[in-house]
Amino acid sequence: MSDVLPFRAMAYNNAWANHRLLTACLGLSQDEFTAKRTGFFPSLRATLNHILIIDHFYVDAMEGGTLGPAAWANEEPCATVAALKQAQAAVDRRLLNVVEALDAAGLQRIVSVHRGTSIQRERMDRLLLHLFQHQVHHRGQAHSMLSGTSVSPPQVDEFFSAGEAPLRATEFAELGWTEEQVWGVPVSD
């Protein structure tokens, strides 16, 4: 297994989990999406927008950009689930492009993270792990919030689970992926 493969798998899993969660959220009314809920952020809209803006912040840095704190100038850039789903898919594709371009040396590359008055320098592998942890943390909060709505939360923690081949194939087709693209070899259930 190459050094990069686990990071590629996590990037694909991240994008797939976001796709599943936001597709489920499309079933919410706007009132349910914006309703006050218990969590680190006060609503599904606020929580999911936070994931998006922090992704912009870190992915921009990984791409060599200098966006920095301007990423969170608007704390809720997407007012609707549809807009959020489209914006999240775009930044997920950017993250996949970053990870797809990596080799073992690229994982060790130092990334400059612009934090306003200072620049943090962090290895790419550590920054990726931090970003994936951030995603899982807040996506879990959104998942929990969703359980208090009329929409059932989707399964988001099993990347390749037995018996899900038909659903996986449908979702991968929606995302434009194949199992071979993710793993390099087909996965059998």
Rank of each mutant, 00 (worst) to 15 (best):
T149N: 04
L131T: 07
Q135H: 14
V151I: 14
A142W: 01
L127V: 07
P154H: 07
H134C: 06
H143W: 15
R121T: 13
M145W: 09
H143Y: 11
H138F: 03
V111P: 06
Q135M: 03
H138A: 01
G148S: 15
P154C: 07
V136T: 13
A142Q: 10
R139C: 03
A142P: 09
I119L: 02
I119C: 01
H143P: 03
G140N: 08
G140A: 06
L127F: 10
A142R: 07
H137P: 03
H134W: 05
S150P: 05
V136M: 01
S147P: 04
R123E: 15
P154A: 08
L129S: 04
R139A: 01
L128W: 14
V111K: 07
G148K: 11
H114G: 03
R126F: 10
R121F: 05
F132H: 01
Q141F: 03
I119A: 08
H134S: 09
V111F: 07
R139Q: 11
R115I: 01
V113G: 10
S112L: 05
H134L: 02
E122F: 07
I110F: 01
A142S: 11
F132K: 04
V113E: 11
H138M: 02
G148E: 14
G140M: 05
G140K: 07
L128C: 13
L129T: 06
G148M: 08
